[in-house]
């Protein structure tokens, strides 16, 4: 049960990932860093972070448990789940 409870952390995590994909704290900031406005870099880094956390979500098995199913590969070595 503790596993599924820990899975609940993903809900606020996803909420934060969605909410701050828009660089709200940099509203009105016009600094240019390395050739691009700094808020564009925020966004680039943020989407990178999303991919990292999304893969953690999948690997942890929360992907399956979230749908009420048991993860097919409990050790979650790859992004697996398919039998090929």
């Amino acid at each position: 049960m503790s596993r599924s409870r820990r899975d609940l952390v993903w809900i606020p995590t996803f909420a934060v990932l969605v909410a701050f994909a828009v660089p709200w704290p940099l509203w009105g900031v016009d600094r240019v860093v390395a050739g691009l406005p700094v808020w564009i870099w925020w966004h680039v880094a943020w989407l990178g972070l999303c991919t990292v956390l999304f893969s953690r979500f999948v690997e942890s098995g929360a992907w399956e448990r979230g749908m009420g199913r048991r993860p097919e590969s409990e050790n979650g070595s790859a992004l697996g789940g398919d039998r090929r």
Partner: peptide, 17 residues
């Protein structure tokens, strides 16, 4: 397979960017 959907989900943000 479900795995196909998982991998696509993970790669999606970077691909879009």
């Amino acid at each position: 397979s479900g795995g196909t959907l998982k991998r696509s989900f993970v790669l999606w943000p970077v691909l879009v960017l």
